[in-house]
Design a protein around this nucleic acid. Structure first.
Length: 629
RNA sequence: GCCCCCGUAGCUCAGCUGGAUAGAGCAGCGGACUUCUAAUCCGCAGGUCGCAGGUUCGAAUCCUGCCGGGGGUGCCA
């Protein structure tokens, strides 16, 4: 279906359009002051007062030393909105100076027609910016768990939002694939394989996860315990026992450090084992990412190991340029100056034993992302506990010039899109009864399993294959939506019952609303109703039609709101409102049995537009959708 | 000690740059299906916005102090 594109470049958002008109009126009333004023247009909270309102008169009156109601009157007098609104009179000025506006039905219809174009009001920008999104953040040899769910889902959704807005997005999976912990498990695997207790080719992630924990345990020293024993004189026997354990652990640790050195030198035997760990872990990770309906692929892999060759150069560069300095044998970047961010804690980039730290890797990552990949904005979807770390790294990177693109006048934007913890229903961190992390795969399975039960119950006539497909989509959508629909920074309580309740603000509710838009067209086909609605004049009569129309027009601003605040919740809230408006409309405005053919065609067009916005919005959020459920 | 985040209805959460009577959902109560999927819709009830000051014509929102909860804090990642 091809429609003329001529009008699609202009906005159909009443807030923007009215803003322009108000700005002109304000400028006419207060020359020299009004030009930069904020027209303060917003949707009316109370439908009986109007559709939109401007609150501009109050703050402006203060600056001009006028009475706000008088200023409001003057603005209304200069206001030219006859083509958009019902006549605005003195009676529409309320309270201290609110100006209430009612959209004309024909204007509303015209705006909707303008929206009804392929890009739905979000044309690609002439010069896309480059946005790097750091997401997923898995560690080698460890099972993915509910914490990775947030980093993966929120990060991918933010990436999708920028993609929808036409920006160039580069996903970066900063895999924890390097350093001493990885060397520990590599060494452990070598030993197990060497002793014939392990077939590396048949290695599973479960086994890897177990050996990782074992290696960690073996290398854990008893220093603290020994100190306590000595301090309180708990006896030579216990001291000897602990000493022996400690010595053993130190031996393991020394072995791990040697393995790390071998790994860094790409010594073939060690490297081959590491490579195997990498393959097994990333295979499982990418499978989970696929099942989660994300666009995270192998191309996003940019693990810590990929920076290992750059760390020495980073540190040397920082020292040479006087950005880093020595302190107690370590190298630090001081950030306490007001111009550096005023952070009391310095950023450590090299230990006194010469080893690098994760801040060193992150400095190298900022440098690559901004200076090589050309990021205008780098977004880190990492849990909130890393707040200080990122404040330090960002400040240090800016100080070092790593955050500035070659030739750019100022640094790119570095942002930590921090998210809260996932809690169990007891309010404590989400774990199994035995205190283990819940495996991500198990979590997905249970969501899908529960969804399958409900689908079978609600729609028993579906075939086995379709039912399973629908359950997969519904379960995943429910899980992701639960993660996306709250404020990012807050901890959230994980509850299968709530996310899969299929009522209220849930993923399944949105999917259901989309299904209901689509079923109208299936039924129309069955009934032989002509689907010639594409250019049908839109008729806005019923209050439910009007509410739906107003909701539809807000779509682009909702998506842009997510990009600005990095809050997927905004789009969730918008879609929930749209789904609700559609449900009310669906209930009170029959489409196929509309009173006239004109009205039916108008409503079909409204349904089609709603379906497209819902589908586009769900795809932007990254929720899988279904035709029936 | 210092720093950061959170505190809104019984529960889970919204409330965008300060704006009119603080909104949803769940749970509770009451209605609406021979009619496009009732996984829905409509209505009722439910709140000293943690507390106390301050700024303002106007504060859940901004500032200060306190209380409660969580997290972080120089050589782990």
């Amino acid at each position: 279906m091809i429609r003329p594109m001529t009008e699609s470049t202009t906005t159909f958002d009443p807030v923007e359009l009215l803003g322009e008109r108000f700005l002109a009126a304000i400028a006419a009333v207060a020359p020299g002051v009004g030009e930069g004023a904020d027209p303060m247009i917003s949707g009316s909270k109370r439908a009986e007062l109007g559709d939109f309102q401007s609150n501009a008169a109050m703050p402006l009156a203060k600056r001009l030393g006028m009475k706000p109601r008088e200023l409001a009157g003057a603005i209304v007098e200069k206001l030219d909105v006859a083509d958009l609104c019902e006549p605005v009179t003195e009676a529409d000025i309320a309270g201290p100076g609110f100006i209430n506006l009612r959209l004309r039905a024909d204007a509303l219809a015209g705006l909707l027609a303008r929206m009804d174009a392929p890009e739905l009001g979000m044309p690609a920008p002439a010069e896309p910016r480059t946005i790097v999104v750091d997401l997923c953040g898995v560690n080698l040899a460890k099972q993915m768990h509910v914490g990775h769910l947030r980093a993966t889902v929120i990060g991918d959704t933010l990436a999708r939002v920028f993609e929808r807005l036409g920006e160039k997005v580069i996903r970066q999976n900063h895999v924890g694939d390097w350093g001493l912990p990885i060397a520990m498990v590599t060494r452990k695997l070598q030993a197990e394989a060497g002793a014939g207790r392990l077939d590396l080719e048949a290695l599973t992630l479960d086994e890897l996860d177990r050996l990782y924990k074992l290696a960690q345990f073996e290398c854990a020293g008893q220093g603290k315990g020994l100190a306590i024993v000595e301090k309180f004189g708990l006896g030579p026997k216990i001291e000897a026992e602990l000493s022996a354990k400690h010595a053993e652990a130190m031996e393991h640790l020394a072995g791990a450090k040697a393995t790390l050195v071998a790994l860094q030198a790409h010594e073939p035997g060690v490297y081959a084992v590491w490579k195997r760990i990498y393959e097994v872990t990333m295979g499982a990770c990418l499978e989970a990412c696929g099942r989660l309906h994300t666009r995270i692929t192998e191309a996003a892999n940019a693990g810590e190991s990929s920076y290992s060759e750059e760390l020495r150069g980073v540190v040397e560069d920082l020292v040479a340029r006087g950005v880093a300095e020595e302190s107690d044998g370590a190298l630090v970047v001081r950030l306490d100056a007001a111009g550096d961010g005023g952070i009391a804690e310095p950023c450590l980039i090299r230990k006194s034993d010469g080893g690098f730290l994760y801040a060193t890797t992150d400095m190298a990552a900022v440098r690559r992302r901004v200076r090589t990949l050309g990021a205008d904005r780098v977004i880190y979807t990492v849990d909130a506990r890393q707040g200080l770390h990122f404040r330090q790294v960002f400040a240090a990177a800016r100080k070092a010039g790593y955050a500035t693109k070659p030739g750019a006048s100022g640094p790119s934007v570095l942002e930590h899109a921090a998210f809260g913890m996932v809690l169990g229903e007891d309010g404590r961190p989400f774990k199994t009864r035995s205190g283990e992390n819940v495996k991500l795969g198990d979590l997905l399975d249970e969501a899908v399993e529960r969804a399958a039960r409900t689908v079978a119950e609600k729609n028993p006539e579906l075939g086995e294959g379709e039912r399973r497909e629908i359950a997969e989509a519904v379960g995943i959508a429910a899980l992701k939506y639960a993660d996306l629909s709250g404020e990012r920074i807050k901890d959230y309580v994980f509850s299968f019952d709530r996310m899969l309740a299929f009522e209220g603000n849930t993923g399944p509710y949105l999917l259901y609303a989309l299904v209901r838009t689509r079923s109208v067209f299936r039924k129309a086909l069955e009934a032989g109703v002509a689907l010639d609605y594409a250019d049908a004049p839109i008729v806005i009569g019923h209050p439910a039609e009007k509410a739906l129309a107003l909701e539809l027009l807000r779509y682009p601003s909702a998506v842009r709101g997510v990009a600005a605040a990095l809050e997927p919740m905004r789009l969730c809230g918008y879609l929930y409102g749209l789904a609700g408006a559609y449900s009310s409309f669906y209930d009170s405005c029959h489409v196929l049995k509309a009173e006239s053919e004109g009205l039916r065609r108008s409503r079909l067009r409204l349904c089609a537009l709603t379906a497209r916005v819902l589908a586009d919005g769900l795809e932007t959020l990254g929720l899988p959708t279904v035709e029936r459920m």
